[in-house]
């Protein structure tokens, strides 16, 4: 029997309140992307992940475990589950994703760090204090829990004197840039997505990629944050030909991801409809959000290949020997 909406919302909210993430993941895995980068802790400007990419393989593992049981990825728990979760992190008893499942998601923040270094941007990281933004709890309307969590996140920025956060995914960008100022009096943090930063500074890769890609705009980037031109400008410079699907830019269609925690079948059906639109214009797709990536790739199976935009952006620089030197900050 599917878990009731009330229990699912309750477990996610409890996790954020008690464990600072909707799905607590081991700290070592949340910061694996920093390996080899020799980043400083804190500083005026940080690259902030909000753990979004790192969370995906854990969510997928739960989806895979729970899918047979019915409607929701927490469906294995009865109403009793939320009470137990108060004292024991029940998600920690689930199977954990292996190195292979994690590595694709660890790679993205690492890619972004390399691209920013190449553009001459100096930044640090908050490592294990780079916390989840609370985006899902905001969507679910649990505002009191979100507000308390946002305060914790902001205190970390203040503790390290951070003035600017460079974000990667649309959800963390929206929370830090647009939602937090409505929750925290005197909030003062400059927030830009790395796509905006690179587009402003000039990206100019030396190598040209070839081929066509169907662009999938994230709803949150396009309609909440106005990030539409930056990804196009950057992709164009790689030499790739951008193909626009029927619903695109500020009229983009959702990947279905936001429905996954409560209504996975609705999410999957929407992802399939979106893949059909994208496949009609190109055989490869480019995404800029981890939820879009995982939902669309899952719906497409082997009929279409998706890549995160940072993979393409980095590939177009690789002939420059973009390796150890940039990774080490020299």
């Amino acid at each position: 029997m599917p878990l009731a909406t009330s229990d699912t919302v309750g477990i996610l909210a409890d996790n954020l309140r008690l464990r600072r993430s909707v799905l607590p993941i081991p700290a070592a895995n949340a910061i694996r992307w920093t390996e080899g980068l020799h980043l400083a802790r804190g500083g005026e400007r940080v690259l902030y992940t909000g753990q979004m990419y790192q969370l995906i393989p854990y969510i997928e593992q739960m989806v895979a475990t729970q899918e047979k049981l019915g409607d929701s990825w927490l469906a294995g728990f009865t109403g009793f589950g939320r009470r137990v979760n108060r004292v024991l992190n029940i998600t920690s008893f689930m199977a954990h994703p292996g190195v292979d499942e994690r590595s694709v998601y660890d790679r993205i923040p690492h890619n972004v760090a390399l691209l920013l270094r190449r553009a001459g941007v100096e930044f640090g990281s908050l490592f294990d204090e780079d916390l989840y933004s609370g985006a899902l709890i905001y969507d679910l309307g649990v505002d009191e829990v979100l507000k308390a969590h946002a305060q914790k996140v902001y205190e970390v920025f203040q503790k390290y004197g951070v003035k600017e956060a460079i974000t990667i995914d649309p959800h963390t960008t929206n929370m830090l840039r647009t939602v937090y100022p409505t929750l925290i009096p005197g909030y003062d943090l400059r927030v830009r997505s790395y796509l905006e930063v690179l587009a402003d500074l000039g990206y100019g890769p030396s190598r040209k990629l070839s081929g066509e890609v169907a662009i999938h705009d994230s709803c949150v980037f396009a309609r909440y944050e106005g990030v539409v031109e930056a990804p196009r400008q950057l992709l164009q410079q790689t030499g790739l030909t951008i193909r626009e699907p029927e619903h695109t830019g500020t009229s983009t269609w959702c990947c279905g991801g936001p429905a996954e925690s409560l209504f996975p079948k609705t999410a999957a059906a929407q992802a399939s409809r979106r893949v059909s639109e994208l496949r009609a214009v190109a055989g490869r797709g480019v995404t800029m959000c981890p939820l879009c990536f995982v939902n669309l790739q899952k719906a497409a199976g082997d009929t279409m290949q998706f890549e995160d935009i940072s993979d393409y952006l980095l590939q177009a620089c690789q002939a420059e020997g973009l390796t150890e030197e940039i990774a080490n900050g020299h």
């Binding site: 709803c219 619903h247 959702c254 429905a259 409560l262």
Partner: peptide, 10 residues
């Protein structure tokens, strides 16, 4: 709870 909050309507 099934609305995607995608804002296309808005």
């Amino acid at each position: 709870f099934s609305c995607l909050l995608c804002k296309l309507c808005e």
